[in-house]
Lab assay of single mutants.
Amino acid sequence: VTLFVALYDYEARTEDDLSFHKGSKFQILNSSEGDWWEARSLTTGETGYIPSNYVAPV
């Protein structure tokens, strides 16, 4: 499992996005959609889309 960590805070703009804070960790579920990845937050357990340029591999 590849884990990613948030580099910045992000406020969701749609109900499909995940809001998160810098330092939040994610499991990436689908990275084939270009700049928006489907991810599960390891902090909240919620699933949604995150901007790929806001995260980096742990």
Rank of each mutant, 00 (worst) to 15 (best):
V1A: 12
V1R: 11
V1C: 15
V1E: 14
T2N: 12
T2G: 12
T2P: 14
L3V: 14
L3H: 10
L3S: 06
L3I: 15
L3P: 05
F4E: 01
F4M: 09
F4H: 07
F4C: 09
F4V: 13
F4K: 02
F4A: 09
V5T: 05
V5S: 04
A6D: 01
A6L: 02
A6W: 01
A6N: 00
A6T: 03
A6V: 02
L7N: 03
L7V: 07
L7S: 02
L7H: 02
L7T: 04
L7A: 03
D9H: 06
D9V: 02
D9K: 04
D9F: 04
D9A: 06
Y10A: 01
Y10I: 01
Y10K: 01
E11V: 14
A12F: 02
A12Q: 06
A12H: 05
A12P: 04
R13T: 13
R13V: 13
T14H: 14
T14D: 12
T14E: 09
E15D: 13
E15T: 12
E15H: 11
D16W: 15
D16T: 14
D16F: 15
D17G: 15
D17M: 13
D17I: 11
L18T: 02
L18E: 00
S19A: 06
H21L: 14
H21E: 12
K22R: 10
K22D: 02
K22S: 07
K22Y: 05
G23M: 03
G23I: 01
G23K: 02
G23Q: 03
S24H: 15
K25E: 09
F26E: 00
F26S: 00
F26Q: 00
F26R: 00
F26M: 06
F26Y: 02
F26N: 00
Q27S: 07
Q27W: 14
Q27R: 08
I28W: 02
L29C: 08
L29Y: 06
L29W: 06
L29I: 11
N30P: 04
N30A: 08
N30D: 13
N30G: 09
N30K: 08
N30R: 08
N30H: 08
S31L: 09
S31D: 13
S31R: 12
S32Y: 10
S32G: 11
S32R: 10
S32N: 11
E33H: 14
E33M: 14
E33G: 14
G34A: 13
G34Q: 12
G34T: 12
G34Y: 09
G34L: 11
G34K: 13
D35G: 12
D35I: 10
W36A: 05
W37N: 01
W37L: 09
W37V: 06
E38P: 06
E38G: 04
E38V: 15
A39M: 05
A39Y: 02
A39I: 03
R40D: 02
R40Q: 09
R40E: 06
R40F: 13
S41I: 09
S41R: 07
L42H: 05
L42E: 07
L42S: 04
L42T: 07
L42P: 04
L42F: 06
T43E: 15
T43H: 12
T43V: 11
T43N: 10
T44R: 02
T44S: 09
T44V: 02
T44A: 02
G45V: 01
G45C: 09
E46Y: 07
E46C: 10
T47H: 08
G48M: 04
G48P: 00
G48R: 01
G48K: 01
Y49G: 03
Y49M: 14
I50N: 00
I50Y: 00
S52H: 07
S52V: 08
N53P: 05
N53I: 09
N53F: 11
N53T: 10
Y54E: 01
Y54F: 11
Y54P: 01
Y54M: 11
Y54R: 06
V55S: 00
V55N: 00
V55H: 00
A56R: 10
A56L: 08
A56Q: 10
P57V: 08
P57G: 05
P57N: 05
P57M: 09
V58T: 07
V58H: 07
V58A: 09
V58E: 10
